[in-house]
Design a protein around this nucleic acid. Structure first.
Lengths: 153, 153
DNA sequence: GGTAAATATTTCATGCTTAAAGCAATTAGG
DNA sequence: CCTAATTGCTTTAAGCATGAAATATTTACC
């Protein structure tokens, strides 16, 4: 294996380790301090960006998870009154999922805590540096998507 | 929220998105082309770095997962003859987990494919850039660990 | 209009993950 | 010694994740 290849593998392993560590800490905070989980947080976050609601299939598309997965999470959130399923007029197959007022209020608190937490975690990174890295990642993601689209043709 | 805070949040979300995307692709490859999963790959990877074997508790410590988690994965790998449980002389509670020759051979192929895949994925990143980013991440991780140790006292 | 294909969602089986409880063996402290 | 605490591991219950099968509805097309 070439040296460049070794360096890239090392980068990937470090990236995985750091992100997994942060993600684990986030899961702990959500569980201990907000009695919720990261998948639930992700669903509520997506719904909060679409106050009019999202169809189940749109939601699984946005989150890039399977259909069946969203069904289960929606079931549990719905039992707790944090989201509601609404019939779509003109299509009896589809359901719109939407935050309830209580769900929206609860998510607002969780989102604020999340932002405060990550801002504190990344305190050692300046605004400029953060922007530069985010742009670099954006470019990488865009390039990857291009390839996917090319492959799909 | 300050601008710096916004930039840090954005960086975190991008980081999560990119790493999750790559991880998902890796899971797909492991499933489709190697009939295995990322958790199994992680366990075998840890064992391959310790040919003499690891105690179950050491393994869960290295991988930073729960004890019960490793039990289940070890059960399934063991059924397929890829790892074996060995009694520890002098302590009848403990078990050493070790790759079988077949497990080691299979992992070697998977590890090579993994390296080739990530090297191709990160082709747009030069060796120098990869080293710089890896070092940056390393510094971040080290700084985080310091704080954890301080908190633990 | 009637059937075939496509779409939207749920259900199912399997595996990963955790925290907590349980069990067996070892170690500590009197 | 001998009991209590600790250690090492497994089991359990609940949630998350997938792909595939099942169900219901809508759309396409002849």
């Amino acid at each position: 294996m070439s040296n460049a290849a070794k360096d890239r593998v090392r980068l990937w392993l470090r990236l995985l380790k750091v992100v997994r560590g942060l993600e684990q800490e986030l899961r702990d905070i959500l569980r201990r301090e907000h009695k919720t989980t990261l998948p639930r947080f992700d669903v509520m976050s997506a719904l909060s960006r679409h106050p009019e609601g999202l169809k189940m299939s749109q939601l699984s598309g946005v989150l890039r998870v399977s259909n069946g997965n969203v069904t289960g999470i929606a079931d549990r959130l719905s039992e707790e009154g944090l989201v509601e399923r609404i019939a779509v007029p003109g299509d009896r197959r589809a359901m719109l999922l939407r935050l309830t007022p209580e769900g929206a209020a609860q998510f607002a608190r969780q989102a604020q805590a999340h932002e405060d937490w990550i801002n504190e975690k990344l305190r050692g990174i300046s605004a400029e540096e953060a922007r530069a890295m985010a742009d670099r990642l954006q470019a990488f993601a865009a390039q990857t998507e291009e390839k996917e689209q090319a492959n799909a043709q």
